[in-house]
Design a binder for these strands. Sequence first.
RNA 1: GCCUGGGUAGCUCAGUCGGUAGAGCAACGCAUUCGUAAUGCGUAGGUCAGGAGUUCGAAUCUCCUCCCAGGCUCCA
Length: 660
Amino acid sequence: MSDIEVLLPDGSARSLPAGATGKDLAASIGARLAKDALAIEVNGHLTDLTAPLANGTKVSIVTPTSSHGRDVLRHSSAHVLAQAVTRLWPGAHFAIGPAIENGFYYDFALPGGAHFSDDDLVRIEDEMRVIVSEDQPFTRREYSYDEGIALFKDQPFKIEIINAVKAGASDEDLGEVESSSVVSTYLNSPAFTDLCRGPHVPSTSRLGHFKLMRVAGAYWRGDEKRPQLQRIYGTAWESEAALQAHLTQLEEAEKRDHRRLGQELDLFSFPSELGPGLAVFHPKGGTMRRVMEEYSRQRHVEGGYEFVNSPHITKAELFETSGHLEWFAESMYPPMELDDGQHYYLKPMNCPFHVLIFKSRQRSYRELPLRFFEFGTVYRYEKSGAVHGLTRVRGMTQDDAHIFCTREQMSDELTSLLNFVLNLLRDFGLNDFYLELSTRPEGKAVGSDEEWAEAEATLERVANSVGLELVLDEGGGAFYGPKISVQARDAIGRTHQLSTIQLDFQTPQRFEASYVGADNARTRPIMIHRALFGSVERFMAILIEHYAGNMPTWLNPEQVRVLGVRDDHDVYAAEVAEALRADGVRVGLEEANEPLGARIRRAKLEKIPYILVVGDDDVRDATLGVNARGSNDPERGVSVHAFRARLAAEIASHGSPEGP
RNA sequence: GCCUGGGUAGCUCAGUCGGUAGAGCAACGCAUUCGUAAUGCGUAGGUCAGGAGUUCGAAUCUCCUCCCAGGCUCCA
């Protein structure tokens, strides 16, 4: 047999003896690489380090610090988890166990329907460490379909996967089998074999920097109607340092959790008397909301929107016509029945009301586009397990607008709307966006194929025109039309779905809305639904987390606090506060009956942008001591005039004391 | 809705074997008058989420309900 030649990622070629494996290749390049190697990628396809190489293929060595490398070690960690569980619970059934972002999970059904407890995680993790120390090799075996069925005769979930794949399922979630003809497995010890397409690390000893995080219920194959399995989540990394860094980052994220900051900064609360998902806003949170809403209103006036209003309840008829009762009855609050038998619903959406405003009189093409805006409060009966802080609530206020336009105006209107959206979000300090295009939902849509095709094509064209990255969300649209959503990355790299822009040919039809065209014919308008914040509550939550509570000065409930050094400075402090208040600044004043240090500390904990300290020198010279948020180095002797100008500029530019 | 865990003072939390409730911070009062992240002393504050049960006795054990967290499902 002659040598083979493979191509490396740097473009160079390397000759190896026939039958050489990835492991041999790594060794031929360097001892260090051979030691690090976890798997190989052959022509873009991940495979085991022990797989023989073919002539002329492109091969790269996968190491633990790459994202592929982490996926491999996370996936292998999942196998170790499954082995540990089957040791501790003989007869346990195991389902699927993929690598996920930052870690892995594995789903189980325990004998007798038993459940994992939090204490079990400790035992399982200990057992996993035993398996790691046993240095078990991951050995790949391939079988025929019949052999596979026989091998997993005691594992009903595996049998189901093998059969599903044989029947042609290509569901990514199954992820365990690569083709319908070959059943591949990985054998650790004789006692544990798992169905899997691989690849895996060479041996369990390559793992170890993991931690089991939590246990959760998860429906088999994500289907509410199928049995619920016990899922264990873990995180796994290539080194102890990387693991610790991840755990530290989780702690940091917890510190900026809006629910925690909402409590600490006295912004809002969820009184249990109200029920799940129903918030009250305290004066400080109310101020932040008011500023957000006022700014949004101002921008909408400038953007050519007209302001409308609609009630919170309506007869059932409205939502029968709109179709919401047909699709979403179970997530609407149940109806109130009146004496005459009439059913009234709390509104879950504003759009039907805006259509009625459109229909309140005859409309001409000359009026279009019509842009109706409302801060509309809606109520949705979210499943009890779905509510989450301010981001998923049962009562919320949408910055909702509906644009009625002609088919010809649609494209331009969408383009200017998208720019309007992005500019508004930038004004709130969000800068890193991508777009998502959600298309027709399978089996849950109304309207003709042509309408959907046109709507989707229009949205795609518009989305492409703004030059942002566009991701396809197949089947994610609403029942009445496709949508573009703006996804924003926050300060710690998480993405949030913010604004949505939905195209709707259906609702005008259902309500028989029309305008008189230039040709004197009654014509159906196009309707565009759009919310920029999504909901005021959720957007506030995202901003709080983005800024970790250090809101830019214009949004901070209290922008400045003035403190006198001694109580005989309180009069001057009050004068300073009054001067700032006259500029429209939200300013607080605390009298000097506690030590200065204590009052400063309190104001710092409240994340107030500027603490002004005034003492003898300041009274004499008409100056201030300025202690800016984020700084441990207060300025002394700043003139009141200079500070007022600086603050006004910062507020106008939506800046923060920490800088842009 | 489902699974797991939780709910003790306004907040953060301790509370052993079932023996009748504790700290720090906050609040309030008095003293302190201070130049940049905690002044001292004192006072008050609890249906231990709610209800039922077991027990001589329940924060503690059992059951039901409510609420919260993390997931799953859902998200117009």
